[in-house]
Amino acid sequence: MGFFNNLFSSKEKRKNAQKYKIGMSKTRNNVFGNLKTLLDSSSLIVDELFDELEEIFIMADIGVDTVVKFVDHLREKVRVDNITSTNDLKELIVEEMFKLYVKEDIVSSNLDIVDGRINIVLFVGVNGAGKTTTISKVAHEYIKKNKKVLMVAGDTFRAGAIEQLKIWSNRVGADFYAKAEGSDPSSVMFDAINYAKENSIDIILCDTAGRLQNKINLMKELEKINKVIGREIEGAPHETLLVVDATTGQNGLSQAKIFNEVTKITGIVLTKLDGTAKGGIVLAIKDELDIPIKYVGLGEKIDDLEHFDIEEYIYGMFLGIF
């Protein structure tokens, strides 16, 4: 436990956790009131505590199955390790949540971007998740690192989508490639890759149209986009990121499952975490499908995108209590 203790009690983590809780204050008292009372009133672990924990996890949209599993695991751990004080329980929660998230693996929130090749990152997701804005933020991150970034308008369907990406590309100083509205998105990707080859682009960020995962034709279209990219550049797309709105409930799991079947998802971007929603479904996604979270969106400004940090996220969920 020592190693984790050092990790978690580090002031920096707790300070950073602040950003995950922005806005939570309003609902925080309602949600956490009982837990806080229970923790404050007694230093001993009572059974009610687990019930309160369950509530908090459910309210955070962590999937029911994952919550039940996790809380059962906590109970067991408390029993086996003979943990009696609530202070130790707090540490245990963070530690076990961390373990649940990373499993035995090394989880990196960095993208697979390598020098000396054209790196392709494909962004997919349902309508309104925040794909276009996220792409702009990621472009900004890599332009700051002196990479040459190309933003590709693969959403040829939604009214104004091409224009929206174009405006962003101007703001962040990225190259921009688009064809007319209504063009076949696969052909847009094909031409964009040629553009990248001719203009020594380091990173291509591909926007795609929002699609609900149960729309078979749209998912086939995505499959084709993926295939065309892979045919033009071996091993591409190097990253396929599923953009998930933090307000999303259990449907997030269905999104991850089905998108993952069509185009192997390498990571999640959790957007709009600056609201009151906690986006806990991504933990269920990690638990069930082993897809890590790469980024969290924390606002509308171009800098409001952060690499995901599980400890900060958990502290954010319990801020004010721990």
Partner: peptide
């Protein structure tokens, strides 16, 4: 959004 989770209530209430 019909896919909204537990937060729907917070959003609507506010």
């Amino acid at each position: 959004d019909a896919m909204t989770g537990q937060d729907a209530v917070n959003v609507a209430s506010n």
